[in-house]
Simulated assay, not measured.
Amino acid sequence: MWTIPNIITLLRMLLIPVFVVVYYLDWQWAHQAGAFIFWLAAITDWFDGYLARRLKQSTAFGAFLDPVADKLIVAAALLMITHTYNSVWVTVPAILLLAREIYVSALREWMGQQGRSDTVKVSFVGKAKTMAQMLALIGLLSELEVFMGIPIYWVSLGYGLLYIAAVLSTWSMVTYTVAAWGDLTGKAKAG
């Protein structure tokens, strides 16, 4: 259980309250520091998966804990940007992304109980959604449009990527549902 990848995943979970507290500090660069912590957590997500494969330290505990850690920090970030921006243009895609995470997690759990988890395994579209979502959240959390006098338009990019993530999220949710439809309706067993 105490493999290097699992320890990194646990550290990522411990970063969640740190991320939230830092983001809401009464300090000029609090949002940028919070965005950096979120970025650090996102990097550890890639890193723990890489190490699990490279060191052959994949465990059932890690397979369970990794997506939980990801969903917790993403849910926190989505809630935080809806509060920060207080706009329907951020809230609607954030709710869609959060609803999709809950729906797909439940679908995967149910399909796993049916012994059909391969039917709804992570797809390329799901990975693209995650990448767009993470970059969007970093941009929106940071609230940076200019860095050291140089226009970088992170917030504008964040808005665009949030909508791309929402579209990919809907697409992947529909794809997973279609793949599982026979099992969900009972027609897979009958056929």
Rank of each mutant, 00 (worst) to 15 (best):
V22R: 01
V22K: 06
V22A: 01
Y23W: 07
Y24Q: 13
L25C: 10
D26I: 11
W27S: 14
W27L: 14
A30K: 06
H31T: 12
H31L: 12
H31D: 12
Q32C: 11
G34Q: 09
A35K: 04
A35M: 09
A35H: 04
A35Q: 10
F36M: 14
F36K: 11
F38E: 06
W39D: 13
L40M: 12
A41W: 09
A42T: 05
T44L: 07
D48S: 05
D48I: 03
D48K: 01
G49M: 04
Y50A: 04
Y50P: 04
L51A: 08
L51K: 02
A52Q: 03
A52I: 00
A52E: 00
A52N: 00
R53P: 01
L55Y: 02
L55N: 09
K56T: 06
K56G: 07
T59M: 01
T59G: 04
F61R: 08
A63E: 14
F64Q: 15
F64R: 15
F64W: 15
L65G: 12
D66F: 02
D66S: 01
P67S: 02
V68C: 02
A69R: 03
D70L: 02
D70V: 01
K71N: 10
L72G: 09
L72K: 09
L72T: 10
L72M: 13
V74F: 02
V74M: 09
A75S: 13
A77P: 02
L78V: 07
M80Y: 03
M80W: 09
I81D: 01
I81A: 02
T82P: 02
T82C: 13
H83T: 14
T84Y: 13
T84G: 01
T84H: 13
S87V: 11
S87Q: 10
V88R: 15
V88F: 15
V90F: 10
V90R: 04
T91S: 13
V92W: 10
P93Q: 05
A94N: 05
I95L: 14
I95H: 04
L98M: 10
L98V: 05
A99T: 07
R100Y: 05
R100W: 01
I102T: 07
I102V: 14
I102F: 12
Y103T: 01
S105F: 03
S105Q: 00
A106L: 15
A106P: 07
L107M: 00
L107I: 00
L107W: 01
R108A: 04
E109C: 11
E109Q: 13
E109G: 14
W110V: 11
M111H: 02
M111W: 00
M111G: 00
G112S: 11
Q113M: 15
Q114L: 13
G115F: 09
R116K: 15
S117Y: 13
D118I: 13
T119F: 12
T119L: 15
K121Q: 15
K121Y: 14
K121G: 14
S123M: 09
S123E: 09
V125T: 12
G126I: 00
A128G: 05
M131Y: 11
A132M: 04
M134T: 10
L135K: 07
A136S: 12
L137V: 07
L137E: 03
I138D: 02
G139K: 02
G139E: 02
L141H: 08
L141N: 03
S142W: 04
E143L: 11
E143N: 12
